[in-house]
Amino acid sequence: MSAEVPLWEVFIRPRNGLAHKHVGSLHAADEVMALNAARDVYTRRGEGNSIWVVPSASISASDPDQAGENFEPGDKIYRHPTFYEIPDEVGHM
């Protein structure tokens, strides 16, 4: 039986002005076939006007166990605007 066909992650931009968004993955031998397959599988109803395909093996992901340490603002409330008191007289800031 044939070797494993590589896995690709597919990103689609719904329209200009928006970012590409991850929509799923697929198997394809190379980037040309991956783009063709992505068009057939993920854009049958005008879901976008631009596709990126990235080899899944090239994605480095953060460790979910570290999510707390990495992403919780925790005690760093001074990073938020409401931490600072500005008198009403100053107006909207």
């Binding site: 039986m1 494993e4 896995l7 799923g24 993955s25 697929l26 198997h27 057939d40 599988v41 993920y42 049958r44």
Partner: peptide, 26 residues
């Protein structure tokens, strides 16, 4: 034809969801 093509697409979305759990489509 469009419906049958959709079903093929559904299969592929789902295989790719299952693959995130550590099983390969093959």
């Amino acid at each position: 034809l469009a419906k049958v093509q959709d079903e093929g697409g559904h299969g592929l979305y789902l295989y790719s969801a299952a693959e995130t759990l550590g099983v390969s489509r093959k």
